[in-house]
Structure formats: C-alpha cells, structure tokens
C-alpha cells in the first residue's frame, strides 16, 4: 500500500489573526471600490460582444472535445468526471484578440444557474 497516512495536525487559527486579516482584506476591497467610485462618470465604452464562433456547437455536447475555434480555443485534456461539474468557456482577451478557453466549474456555482435552468428547459421540450 503506497498510500501514506500522516496524522493531520489540527491547525488552529488564532481568532485574533483571523479577525485582523478579515479586517485588512475588507479594507483593501473597500479602498479598491472607493478608488473606482472617485472616478466619476468615466464610464468605459462597452466592448463586450461575444464572438460568434463561441456559439457554434458549444452547449450541445458538454463533455465532448470541442473543435479548435478560429479564435484559438483550447480544450482541457482531462475529462471532468461525473456530473458534478459543468463545462464553460472562459472568454479572455489577448491584446485585442478574443479567445476562449474551456474550464470545468462546479455545478453548484451560482454562475451556472442560468445554464442549468436552460438545460432543464431543454429537457422538458
């Protein structure tokens, strides 16, 4: 049996340390938010079109190996086992070029709620 068992050291987190850290983290978030809010009315131009090729053959076979898209799609080599995960395409920009990458995200992630609803709707059809 190759598997080794190490007695897990019970890690106790100092509540004071935790509170301090939480405070600093929140401060940084707040500061980040405030610094953006100060930038009054400098609303960015919209630049959020989803490239057409993303739609082609995307959701039909969730676990299939998608074809290389024109914008440089890459697929994961490993299969995301079971149905605990959902495949999504992450849209990113490389310079001015749009690119999608496939990733698996947990099914219970709030992000995929709408996708799930849609799947449910499809099933009913």
């Amino acid at each position: 049996d190759d598997e080794i068992h190490v007695r897990q050291k019970v890690t106790e987190i100092d509540p004071q340390e935790e509170a301090d850290f939480e405070r600093e983290l929140r401060a940084l978030m707040q500061e980040s938010l405030d610094s953006r809010k100060l930038e009054l009315r400098a609303r960015p131009a919209l630049n959020m079109m989803i490239p057409m090729n993303v739609f082609e053959g995307s959701t039909k076979d969730h676990h299939g190996r998608g074809a290389e898209g024109e914008s440089g799609d890459e697929t994961l080599d490993e299969d995301a086992g079971g149905s605990k995960e959902v495949q999504v395409k992450v849209l990113v920009k490389r310079g001015n070029k749009q690119q999608t990458k496939q990733m698996y995200i947990p099914r219970d992630c709030s992000l995929v709620q709408s996708t799930k609803q849609k799947e449910a709707a499809e099933l009913e059809e």
Binding site: K37, Q87, S114
Partner: peptide, 17 residues
C-alpha cells in the same frame, strides 16, 4: 465572473464601474 444568459460562456468583469 459573470456568465452569458444563454450560453455557457463566462467572463471576468469588474464590480465598479
């Protein structure tokens, strides 16, 4: 991250603005 309404496409977006 936010996702597209109809496709399983997600994208990073800043909270403000």
């Amino acid at each position: 991250f936010i996702s597209a309404k109809t496709e399983s496409v997600v994208v990073l977006l800043c909270r403000e603005p």
